[in-house]
Computed example of a mutant assay.
Amino acid sequence: MTSVLTWVLAVVLGVGHARNDDARLAYAVRGAPTVAVEVGEPFELVVTRSWSGDLEPEPFSERRLAPLRVVEVDVRRDLSGGRTVETRRLRAHAFDVGTLVLDDLVLVARDVATGGAVEARAEPLELTVRSSLTAVDDGALEVPLAPRGPARRSMVWTALALLCVLFVSIAGLARVRTRLVARRQDRDARTERAARRAAEHAAAVAALVGRLERLGERAAQDLDPSAAAQWNGELWSTAREALGLVCGVSFAESTVDEVASALERHGAPDVVRELVGVGRAVDRVRFARASDGPRERASRVERARAAVQLLERSTGPTEHAPTAGGAA
Results as ranks from 00 to 15, higher is better:
residue 131 S to W: 03
residue 210 G to P: 02
residue 92 A to G: 11
residue 298 A to W: 00
residue 118 V to G: 08
residue 285 V to R: 00
residue 61 S to Y: 11
residue 178 T to H: 12
residue 252 A to F: 08
residue 99 T to Y: 09
residue 88 R to N: 10
residue 187 R to V: 07
residue 199 A to N: 08
residue 29 V to T: 10
residue 259 V to D: 01
residue 323 T to P: 07
residue 99 T to E: 14
residue 293 G to H: 14
residue 232 N to F: 03
residue 109 A to T: 15
residue 326 G to P: 07
residue 13 L to P: 05
residue 250 S to Y: 02
residue 20 N to S: 14
residue 239 A to F: 04
residue 29 V to H: 06
residue 252 A to S: 14
residue 27 Y to M: 10
residue 130 R to F: 06
residue 233 G to H: 02
residue 220 A to Q: 14
residue 215 L to Q: 01
residue 113 A to T: 15
residue 56 E to Y: 13
residue 280 R to W: 09
residue 201 H to W: 04
residue 296 E to V: 02
residue 218 R to T: 15
residue 113 A to L: 12
residue 70 V to F: 10
residue 134 T to D: 12
residue 222 D to Q: 13
residue 29 V to M: 07
residue 26 A to D: 15
residue 190 R to N: 04
residue 318 T to L: 05
residue 323 T to C: 07
residue 182 A to D: 00
residue 324 A to C: 08
residue 186 D to W: 00
residue 288 A to T: 12
residue 45 L to G: 02
residue 172 G to T: 14
residue 47 V to Y: 06
residue 230 Q to L: 10
residue 102 L to R: 11
residue 306 A to C: 00
residue 202 A to H: 09
residue 185 Q to S: 05
residue 203 A to F: 05
residue 95 F to C: 13
residue 21 D to G: 09
residue 139 G to W: 04
residue 223 L to W: 08
residue 181 V to M: 03
residue 277 G to M: 02
residue 118 V to D: 12
residue 235 L to I: 00
residue 109 A to P: 15
residue 148 R to D: 13
residue 77 R to D: 13
residue 290 A to V: 05
residue 14 G to K: 07
residue 106 V to I: 14
residue 84 T to I: 08
residue 90 L to A: 06
residue 321 A to S: 10
residue 229 A to K: 05
residue 120 A to M: 06
residue 86 E to A: 06
residue 29 V to S: 06
residue 250 S to F: 03
residue 262 A to Q: 13
residue 326 G to L: 11
residue 268 A to C: 04
residue 91 R to K: 09
residue 194 A to I: 04
residue 312 E to Y: 06
residue 318 T to S: 07
residue 224 D to E: 14
residue 122 A to F: 07
residue 126 E to C: 14
residue 96 D to K: 10
residue 250 S to V: 04
residue 310 L to E: 15
residue 83 R to A: 02
residue 286 R to K: 01
residue 243 L to N: 01
residue 84 T to N: 08
residue 261 S to R: 15
residue 32 A to F: 06
residue 271 V to Q: 00
residue 196 R to M: 02
residue 83 R to I: 07
residue 16 G to M: 09
residue 140 A to I: 14
residue 149 G to W: 07
residue 260 A to N: 05
residue 70 V to C: 12
residue 67 P to Y: 09
residue 162 L to R: 11
residue 274 E to V: 05
residue 115 G to D: 11
residue 41 E to W: 03
residue 294 P to W: 09
residue 167 F to C: 14
residue 272 V to Q: 10
residue 120 A to D: 07
residue 180 L to V: 01
residue 43 F to P: 05
residue 196 R to I: 06
residue 73 V to A: 14
residue 106 V to K: 11
residue 278 V to I: 01
